[in-house]
Design a protein around this nucleic acid. Sequence first.
DNA 1: CAGTGAGCGAGCTTCCGCTTGACTT
Length: 772
Amino acid sequence: MIENLVIVESPAKAKTIEKFLGKDFQVTSSMGHIRDLSKKEYGVDLKNNYDPQYIVPEDKKKLVAELKKLVKTAKTIWLASDEDREGEAIAWHLSEELKLSKDKTRRIVFHEITEKAIKDSIKQFRAIDQNLVNAQQARRVLDRLVGFELSPVLWKKVKPSLSAGRVQSVAVRLIVDREREINSFQSTSAFRVQGDFNVEGAKGLLKGELNKRFIKEAEAKAFLEKCKTAAFSVKNVTTKPSKKSPAAPFTTSTLQQEASRKLGFSVSQTMTLAQRLYESGFITYMRTDSVNLSDLAINAAKAIIEKEFGKEFSEVRQFKTKSKGAQEAHEAIRPAYFEKSSISGSNNEKRLYELIWKRTIASQMSDAKLERTTIDINVSNTSEIFVAQGEVLKFEGFLKVYIESTDDENEEEETGLLPAVKIGQSLLRKSITAVQKFTLHPPRYTEASLVRKLEELGIGRPSTYAPTISTIQNRGYVLKEDREGLERKYQLLTLVSNEIKSEVRTEITGTEKSKLFPDNIGVIVNDFLIEHFKEILDFSFTATVEKEFDDIAAGKMEWKKMIDVFYKPFHKQVEETLKVSEYSKGERLLGNDPATGKPVFARMGRYGPVIQIGEKEETSGEKPRFASMIKGQQLETITLEQAMNLFQLPRNVGTYEDKEIIVSVGKFGPYIRHDNKFVSLKKNIDDPYTITHERAIELIEEKREKDKNKYIKVFEDEPELQILNGRWGPYISYKKNNFKIPKEIEPKDLSKEDCLKIIQGSDKKKTKTKKK
DNA sequence: CAGTGAGCGAGCTTCCGCTTGACTT
């Protein structure tokens, strides 16, 4: 007989709590939700007032059976899931599914895992809050209805297997919108003038920037001309104290951002590492939207800071959550034990832990104190002035431990100590330069900056940021890519001594690393959804429904009524769209074929984006010509010229051994076809439009050499059975199926019978590997 | 796997939020 059974959500949490509660309490976990809507018929009874149809998913059945057993032997059951909408629903599902009687069930909550918090919570038990549960049911049902009604519309009107939803579709929209902003961005340029001056009696240069930029080169040059004869002097010196304060401790979203910027981790990589740190007991829970620290944590941090750095470095701070829709069921992400400034584990685990440690410690440290100095420099024959900025750190404060990074790509130039000068002092001109500077387009999103934007909009939750980012990539809506920059020329004017030099230099611009780009299908789906379901794609849709969920939670609104008000018009819209809308191919008219005058279209074809010359056969009576677009080309931006280029393929580049060599682009990229054999072109080296006869032969020969090693053994009486050398080592190929050879066997020695035995032995597994 | 740009049409895909493992290709 168990006296008390406590059910929490996570097993790691269960382990810690059990220690605090003593032997009268057994603690177990539900591993999150134990029930979900059935996938049949939406899992919602539309004819019966949206009655949800809950089932226990296959992978939860075993766990639920075990819980049922435990519950039977327990006197009192304490439902201790998280203190938020989802947590309340988990408690309710548990009490429903495990058929818990009200008199032996108690609902408790705590938002820190400390002995005191847990023991206090036991004294303040309550019943399940049905209003809060209903708010969750409304959330769940709404998401299901939106997702399961919109997705099939896409299957019929765009492409099978696509998906749409309240969160993912807005995430894609952000990326498509940003790409369009970038495409239509017009860069302008202006000349930035910098003066370097020598100060008599002081080491180091005084570098100032002119308080005016010149649009035209001639203006910049005219200014430099004036500088030739000008005298320079210090007009003014001001020093102002300033301070910097530390950032709040990590939430899921800020951890993902900083780990991305400082350590180069992807969002999912960060979460996997954090999960391991959590399970090892090194950090608190990693899926949280709270910046709150427990009193215990604050005191522990204070003690460490005072001991390590001194009293003057400590400043106790309590941070407030700013983000919309935060539910704050947990603490911020922090080290479980502050005295551990590093841990054992993999290299990346260590790095992530140290980041968390530093950020949390810094958040409890004092402000950094700075002194900003501004020196205005007079130019005798103009009204413009040069301004030099310097910054001196007077007291390090939290900067001793942690510096927050930013996404800002045009980082400020380093400011440091300025040479000491007096007002009126004259300065010696060393050089004046005018550099042409271009304005930058808004930055593309990284995984982490997209998460930040979603959080800002109140869309998605800490537990879903990483999966959402994966989904939109897996569906082919969005690509995470590096992109090489382009060369750009800029003007540079330099005045040294009495000579003005003008030169043209080149810089690389537009280099992108791990940025999110929309792909063709993402753009088509996005435009389709915006056209037909504007309301749901609106950035404020989630915020609007969240307000209603709050009303439901407060008992001011009935949840099924809320769903009804949403669903009726929404469903009508779905039916209307199915009836009226055209099949969406993202078609765009590029212009006319210079040779025939026929229209040229870019659109999505059955096997990907294609270029089509001429109208379809039914209208024009002639078969149109087709060419597949190549990787990286976008329907939205491809030009007529680029499109026409695609028709140069397949190219005949000559003959070899009396057989033609044909170069073309297939599903897997550019290739050479010769004697019915295929050879891939080398990525980033060969170009199908320009490859020469000689190079093609070289590649053919190279492939032949490789193929020689491909066959380990063939059987004359059984041509369909071969032992081959593949990417992952030797394997058996039989009737188009491949089979692994056990490690201990030497492939060369296998007889035909041996092979067949291996094939039969591995037959069972075959069905599993078919999935993609 | 190297074409094709739809074709008979069966049967499948899909949401968001809680959680942790089982899997290697």
